[in-house]
Amino acid sequence: MSDSSAPPSSAAKPGASGSRAVLEAPDIHRALTRIAHEILERTKGADDVVLLGIPTRGATLARRLGDRIEQFEGRKVPIGSIDITMYRDDLRRGPVRPLGPTELPPDGIDGRVVVLVDDVLYSGRTVRAALDALNDLGRPTAVQLATLVDRGHRELPIRADYVGKNLPTAKSEKVKVYLQEIDGRDAVLLMKGDAK
């Protein structure tokens, strides 16, 4: 998940002190198009694929990937979202988190290839929580992971199958993903640890 769900402020715009844009709207568009093609190639046409986004921005990215797959294949791929709040291992460390929606396609996930979609892959703990949540929802044939940005610093043995951009970062830096549907624009910013 990205480091912030707040809308971009003037201090977070590309070129602002302490931040730089690493992806702009055209880059995000190309990355998602490539990931959609890779999913189709790896799953041999996506017949049994279900896209499950991790709220908030992962759910938006899952819808965008679904739209692209539909453009390429001429048919819809089931899309949903999976809330991981109660499966997180840091619930006691921070403020109370609101529950997000878990929305499964009508046919569920049993026997399907589930592609989890998130915006930023960092420690791997968000994905681990999603895998735990998935266990309570059904038994997919396989689970794959798509992420817009992989920033490294894994704390668990988790690897993305589909990556929009590998972005080496310092632990003190923050990666912020902004999407048009939520924030009014598409961008990925790399921010110094003291930037707000």
Rank of each mutant, 00 (worst) to 15 (best):
residue 129 A to T: 03
residue 115 V to G: 08
residue 131 L to M: 15
residue 154 R to E: 04
residue 119 D to C: 07
residue 105 P to V: 06
residue 130 A to C: 00
residue 107 D to L: 08
residue 101 P to Y: 06
residue 129 A to H: 11
residue 95 P to Y: 11
residue 96 V to Q: 15
residue 154 R to W: 04
residue 128 R to P: 01
residue 160 A to N: 05
residue 124 G to T: 04
residue 141 T to P: 03
residue 74 G to K: 07
residue 84 I to D: 05
residue 160 A to M: 02
residue 79 I to N: 02
residue 90 D to S: 03
residue 155 E to N: 15
residue 101 P to F: 09
residue 112 R to D: 14
residue 148 L to S: 06
residue 149 V to L: 07
residue 108 G to W: 09
residue 140 P to W: 11
residue 79 I to H: 10
residue 157 P to D: 11
residue 157 P to K: 08
residue 171 K to D: 14
residue 89 D to S: 09
residue 150 D to N: 15
residue 142 A to V: 01
residue 130 A to Q: 03
residue 136 D to C: 03
residue 168 P to R: 07
residue 136 D to G: 06
residue 72 F to G: 00
residue 129 A to S: 06
residue 110 D to E: 14
residue 142 A to N: 11
residue 78 P to T: 03
residue 120 V to C: 01
residue 167 L to P: 04
residue 91 L to H: 07
residue 78 P to R: 08
residue 106 P to K: 07
residue 96 V to A: 15
residue 126 T to M: 05
residue 74 G to F: 11
residue 146 A to P: 00
residue 147 T to M: 04
residue 143 V to W: 11
residue 127 V to C: 04
residue 127 V to M: 05
residue 169 T to K: 05
residue 113 V to T: 15
residue 124 G to N: 09
residue 148 L to N: 08
residue 122 Y to K: 05
residue 92 R to M: 02
residue 128 R to C: 05
residue 167 L to S: 07
residue 87 Y to F: 15
residue 164 G to E: 05
residue 86 M to F: 15
residue 71 Q to Y: 13
residue 158 I to T: 14
residue 137 L to N: 10
residue 132 D to H: 14
residue 74 G to I: 06
residue 83 D to E: 06
residue 129 A to E: 03
residue 75 R to S: 10
residue 120 V to R: 07
residue 92 R to Y: 08
